[in-house]
Design a protein around this nucleic acid. Structure first.
Length: 289
DNA sequence: CTGTGTTCCTGTTCGC
DNA sequence: TGCGAACAGGAACACA
């Protein structure tokens, strides 16, 4: 369930269960997810305290009292579940719906557990040293945080200048902007009135951003912030750490709405679906230019 | 270097 | 109801 608003919502849900708490043990149900777990993963985590749980793009980063960083990515289908400590004398009973895909259990001192479930196993977890935290290619190449100061029209102009790739691909590229995924790229482009098929470089002239790029920068920030305020989007009954559901999916204007009327005021267009680099793009061919 | 297609894996939905 | 095909929120990798 993983674009920036969903990952940030997960972070906020997990933080109270993890921050300031010591890991009593880690149970791995297998040796790998998308990648093998870092050698000694469980052993090195045992006894460590989580100082803070942060987010960078779509990554979660647990900062440990050892100076190491627990790097986690949810892939397409990863989710966390919190099981609070059972009352004294009562047995621990996991309440996950699909225990076959519970791959990692963090047991915290005091009895609470955080369980990672991931049917498709596109997610992964790595344990990075303080040095690797700064140099690891997965993190070092990440682009700007879209909700931070780093994203504005000038930054977009630098990313797009001379680039022949379509806007859809340029915005999905995590080396440009960290945290956008298929849904929010489609939504932001519709809000900005820009075609996902348009070459990125056509929005830059002489290194300077066009008016459209300013709209795009604002549309990206707006849609992400609104999704965050709604607790993210919930597809296929995916639930949050506390079992609740995000509800931004009800606010989609184009995503998964092929054949529907364009929601833009005064636009008579119909939402179309096209495939770009193997992935569905939803857009209005009439008002997105 | 740049842009595109393939691939990893399982589960759900859709058309017949 | 069953059954195969298509598709799914990501992104590393191979290749032209």
């Amino acid at each position: 369930m993983p674009e920036l608003p969903e990952v940030e919502t997960v972070r906020r849900g997990l933080a109270p269960a993890m921050e300031g708490r010591a890991i009593a043990g880690v149970d791995l149900a297998r040796g790998d997810l998308r990648f093998p777990f870092t050698p000694g993963f469980a052993k090195r985590l045992k006894g460590r305290r989580v100082l803070a749980l942060r987010r960078r793009g779509k990554y979660l980063l647990g900062e440990l009292d050892s100076g190491e960083t627990l790097l986690m990515h949810l892939g397409m289908s990863g989710s966390f579940r919190i099981d609070h400590a059972a009352p004294i004398g009562e047995p621990y009973i996991p309440r996950g719906r699909n225990p076959a895909h519970d791959h990692v259990v963090f047991r915290f001192e005091g009895g609470a557990r955080v369980t990672y479930n991931d049917p498709r196993r596109f997610g992964f977890m790595l344990l990075l040293t303080a040095k690797e935290r700064e140099t690891h290619p997965l993190l070092a190449g990440l682009g700007v945080e879209p909700l931070g100061e780093g994203l504005d029209a000038d930054a977009l102009a630098r990313m797009f200048d001379g680039r022949a790739a379509p806007l859809k691909a340029a915005l999905l590229d995590q080396k440009n902007i960290a945290g956008l995924g298929n849904i929010y790229v489609c939504e932001a482009l519709h809000r900005a009135g820009l075609s996902p098929l348009r070459a990125a470089r056509t929005l830059v002239s002489g290194g300077k951003p066009s008016a459209a790029l300013k709209r795009l920068a604002k549309a990206i920030k707006d849609v992400l912030q609104q999704a965050l305020d709604a607790g993210g989007s919930t597809l296929r009954d995916h639930h949050l750490t506390d079992g609740s559901l995000g509800y931004f999916q009800h606010s989609f204007r184009v995503y998964d709405r092929e054949g529907a009327a364009c929601p833009k005021k005064g636009c008579a267009g119909t939402i179309a679906r096209v495939v770009q680099s193997g992935r569905s793009t939803f857009h209005c061919p009439v008002c997105q230019k």
